[in-house]
């Protein structure tokens, strides 16, 4: 890393089907989620996903700041995805660039389909996503963190949004690409799912896949999203499960 001269493509898949970090094709990186680390925000969450570290904070519903953005019939959602200067090997020039604007926009749109915005007319729900360390899949990690933060803020939603990236690595469809696989693989497809309804609320792709591969990728991604969804629910429950209190009993997992 940081070795600019080295253009050699690493071997992404070993003979026995293991990936560069030893995972199988359908395996996620390790994930930890913490709900509510920021006490002064209305809601917050910190997600470590592989080598990604992402913090999300939610404020609102509150007064709309640039007043002309106000909508009389519903709340507006304003997401800001931002990468810290130190989040990648080579210093990222601080501030919004085209990439982060795009990601902010697609994440906003993903949430607009689940948040009950009509309940809070003339207000704004502000979501801040800060990427502290990046290793591919930050928009998905950011989406998951923001989703938890929205739930933590008590904002009514149809469901949590879960997200994961799938891709094509050394000719095979793989779940949750890490940096090397993203850089040297053939395709990267981040997606976000509303698990209860099965609706896709974000899907982007870079690279090439044929129709069968795409179908396979979507299936694998859906499976990944559902796995992450369970982790998200656990994380939310963990915030309120004090050791002394009885375990939730009648909740079908």
């Amino acid at each position: 890393m940081g070795n600019v001269g080295a253009k050699e493509i690493p071997q992404l898949l070993s003979a026995d089907g293991r990936r560069i970090d030893g995972r199988r094709l359908d395996e996620l990186r390790s994930i930890t989620m913490k709900v509510g680390p920021l006490t002064r925000a209305d809601g917050s969450a910190f997600v470590e996903w592989g080598e990604n570290k992402v913090m999300a904070a939610v404020y609102g519903p509150r007064e709309v700041h640039p007043r002309h953005l106000m909508q009389t019939s519903k709340a507006i959602i304003q997401c800001r995805y931002n990468m810290a200067a130190f989040s990648v090997d080579e210093r990222k020039r601080p501030g919004q660039d085209r990439r982060s604007q795009e990601i902010s926009k697609v994440i906003t749109e993903a949430f607009e389909s689940v948040v009950f915005t009509e309940e809070f007319p003339k207000t704004s729900i502000d979501v801040y996503i800060e990427v502290l360390q990046a290793n591919a899949g930050t928009r998905c990690a950011g989406l998951v963190a923001a989703s938890l933060a929205l739930a933590d803020a008590g904002i009514p939603m149809a469901d949590l949004v879960s997200a994961v990236a799938v891709g094509k690595v050394a000719g095979r469809i793989a779940l949750d690409l890490k940096k090397e696989e993203d850089n040297f693989g053939e395709a990267d497809l981040p997606m976000a799912l509303v698990p209860q309804s099965g609706r896709l609320v974000l899907i982007q792709m870079e690279g090439h896949m044929n129709r069968d591969e795409l179908r396979q990728a979507l299936d694998l991604g859906t499976k990944g999203c559902r796995e992450i969804y369970e982790r998200m629910r656990e994380a939310l429950r963990a915030k309120y499960d004090t050791p002394g209190r009885a375990e939730p009993a009648g909740v079908p997992a």
């Binding site: 739930a151 939603m157 469901d159 949590l160 209860q196 629910r233 939310l236 429950r237 309120y240 499960d241 209190r245 009885a246 375990e247 939730p248 009993a249 009648g250 909740v251 079908p252």
Partner: peptide, 12 residues
């Protein structure tokens, strides 16, 4: 009397 649920949760 009951338990905490997270809301997005599903329960029959």
């Amino acid at each position: 009397s009951n338990e905490s649920h997270e809301g997005e949760g599903s329960w029959e």
